[in-house]
Design a protein around this nucleic acid. Structure first.
Length: 597
RNA sequence: GGGGCCGUAGCUCAGUUUGGUUAGAGCACUCGACUGUCACUCGAGAGGUCGCGGGUUCGAGCCCCGUCGGCCCCGCCA
């Protein structure tokens, strides 16, 4: 028994899942879990599972000592065993083409039970037609769920992506630098997770929402290429693609412009997708924010299908049609989508689209259908006539859907309609990957309830040089040196060129309603840093969990995170959060407002 | 903060439409048979707070109210 395998230890010689026909004749010692056992009476087969896969171990009186065979016959699923035996090529008729190790089996001569197991609370080996256990149970018994080959595959992919990112960035001269987890609360943005200080009564740390300020200060310090696989925390309500703690590939560089960061990001994405076995374009196309909103109604367009949004306001202005007239009179627009061959959509499907649009805030969807030279489906269709239809590009057999109102209503509604149409008409080609940069984001957006300006990206984002003059006159029209990279309608990451001039930073704070005293209190250490000699700098951050989910082809973020939280931000396995002893609270100078029943 | 769906054996699910005998099936588990299986097969058995609390009713897994938990969505997430 020679230890030639890199996974060999004092207890084992190989990973069973890696054994192949080339190992035939080898004497091996394996460690693993009993995935399944088949006892034929006098003959026992055990599927032994380790992280590399599953291998069949056979126990036969012809080569297995009686007491070993007896022990094998008693094995329960998920028991941990050490097996000793010889790898044998299986005769042709006994091979199993469904398993990677199916050309061989291990003929056992020894068996040791090293980890007896009670029956598993949720099955690791599922029978056919058996669904996965409820996610609640999978999270509660995470150690079992993580034994499933599918999840192991995801976690392995995550590891590979993480290493590939590290290697790629290191090779580009980026330094991996850790930043604090106990940091300063930030009133902007998402809610912070707070950590009370024991030493300083009444004071709190916060967990970082991102290492933003630290990485800018690292630029000020001269570490001109930084990266970090950074854990970030945001205390907001969750979604399928949102966890309270998540991981970003965080990048910042000095003496760079937008082009440099974008080129680097394209390189990194190319490397990550290559790691998962996909070849993608070296450069990604670009679209401005304004263009994206106009043509797709959203700032992260899915370019895998057409159905672009058009403006039909001019034509509708000539029609004596009250609903659209009213919207136009109020300064809104009539925008719509022409659906080639859309005439075949059923009444039920059209009603579904109506529901989708209404849930996005629209009053309703106006339908225009053309069959030959007959216009139907709405009063507006008749008023429009064939001539109007021609002007809008509505051909025989087509359907057009219009929404009227201000852009902040029509855009989201048409975005939802567009996506729903693509699904209904099966327009999304399988395996298609359409990367796109969205650039020239506005600097600010108005809070609809208060009317106050807020930063679209974050308050440290630099304006486009040609728009600096707008800051004083029309800040809402000023565009930012910010960029998002989008794949198939999913945002992978985003970043910006930062403000490296303390005066400009002060102006931006002013526009955001942060006076000098407040700015000093909250971001003083950044402003001080900028005054101490700051290079031009910028960066980008990628949502690593989401990328891992895409590349592992996982159905949920929770399937690429070893120990995820539920949508109520609970950890079911370890049971966090939890109450703590009164004495601990006292020491932290914390009083719980209402006694828990 | 709001809306939707779900919760029946250790697990996956029937049963809820129309309230009515002792709540079923497959897998897992226990016992037995079986020498080439690979979802082994076959026989037998054990296993239930129908999430929890309250209500309506002669009678509730099923109807009503509340509550807990999970998932999805809106708000929120610079």
């Amino acid at each position: 028994m020679t230890r030639t395998d890199p996974f060999a230890t004092s207890l084992r010689t190989h990973l069973g899942g890696e054994l192949r026909a080339s190992h035939a004749g080898a004497k091996v010692r394996l460690g693993g879990w009993v995935h399944r056992a088949r006892n034929l009476g006098g003959l026992v087969f055990v599927d032994l599972r380790d992280r590399a896969g599953i291998v069949q171990v056979s126990f036969d009186p012809a080569y297995t000592p009686a007491e070993v065979l007896e022990r094998a016959a008693s094995l329960g699923n998920e028991t941990v065993v050490l097996v000793e035996g010889t790898v044998m090529a299986r005769p042709q008729e006994m091979r199993n083409a469904d398993v990677a190790t199916g050309d061989i089996e291990v003929r056992a001569t020894g068996l040791e039970i090293v980890g007896p197991a009670v029956p598993a609370a949720i099955p690791v080996a599922r029978s056919r037609n058996e669904n996965l256990a409820a996610e609640e149970l999978r999270l509660r018994h995470r150690y079992l769920d993580l034994r499933r080959p599918e999840l192991q595959k995801n976690i392995v992919m995550r590891h590979r992506l993480m290493q590939r990112a590290r290697r790629f960035l290191s090779e580009q001269g980026f330094l991996e630098i850790e930043t604090p987890i106990l940091t300063k609360p930030t009133p902007e943005g998402a809610r912070d997770y707070l950590v009370p200080s024991r030493v300083h009564a009444g004071e709190f740390y916060a967990l970082p929402q991102s290492p933003q300020l630290y990485k800018q200060l690292l630029m000020v310090s001269g570490f001109d290429r930084y990266f970090q696989i950074a854990r970030c925390f945001r205390d907001e309500d969750l979604r399928a693609d949102r966890q309270p703690e998540f991981t970003q590939i965080d990048i910042e560089a000095s003496f760079v412009d937008q082009e440099d960061v974008m080129a680097l990001a394209e390189g990194l994405i190319g490397a990550l997708w290559a790691e998962a076995g996909y070849e993608i374009p070296e450069r990604f196309p670009r679209i401005t924010y304004a263009d994206a909103m106009e043509r797709y109604g959203i700032d992260r367009p899915d370019l895998r299908f057409g159905l672009e949004i058009g403006d039909a306001s001019k034509l509708f202005a000539t029609l004596d049609f009250a609903p659209t007239k009213a919207a136009l009179d109020e300064g809104g627009r009539v925008r719509g989508i022409v659906v080639p061959g859309g005439g075949k959509l059923s009444r039920k499907q059209l009603d579904e689209l109506d529901v989708v649009a209404k849930s996005a805030g629209a009053r309703g969807v106006l339908r225009v259908k053309r069959t030959g030279d007959t216009m139907s489906a709405s009063k507006a269709a008749e008023l429009l006539g064939v001539e109007g239809a021609g002007k809008l590009g509505i051909a025989d057999g087509d359907l057009a859907l219009f929404v009227a109102g201000p852009d902040h209503v029509t855009s989201p509604a048409l975005d939802r309609i567009r996506q729903e149409l693509a699904r209904m008409l099966d327009l999304i080609p399988a395996g298609e990957r359409r990367f796109v940069w969205v650039v020239d984001f506005p600097m600010f957006e108005k809070d609809p309830s208060t009317g106050a300006l807020g930063a679209v990206h974050h308050p440290f984002t630099s304006p486009l040089p040609e728009d600096v003059s707008l800051l004083a006159s029309a800040p809402q029209r000023a565009r930012a040196r910010a960029y998002d990279v989008v794949l198939n309608g999913t945002e992978l990451g985003g970043g910006s060129i930062r403000i490296s001039n303390p005066e400009t930073q002060g102006k931006i704070f002013g526009l955001l309603g942060i006076d000098e005293a407040t700015a000093t209190k909250r971001f003083g250490f950044l402003l001080e840093g900028l005054r101490a000699g700051a290079p031009p700098h910028g960066g980008i951050a990628f949502g690593f969990d989401r990328i891992a989910m895409l590349l592992a082809d996982a159905g949920s973020l929770r399937d690429v995170i070893a120990f995820p939280k539920t949508t109520a931000a609970r950890a079911l396995f370890e049971g966090a959060p939890t109450q703590v002893p009164a004495q601990d609270l006292e020491e932290l100078h914390v009083k719980v407002a209402e006694a828990q029943a």
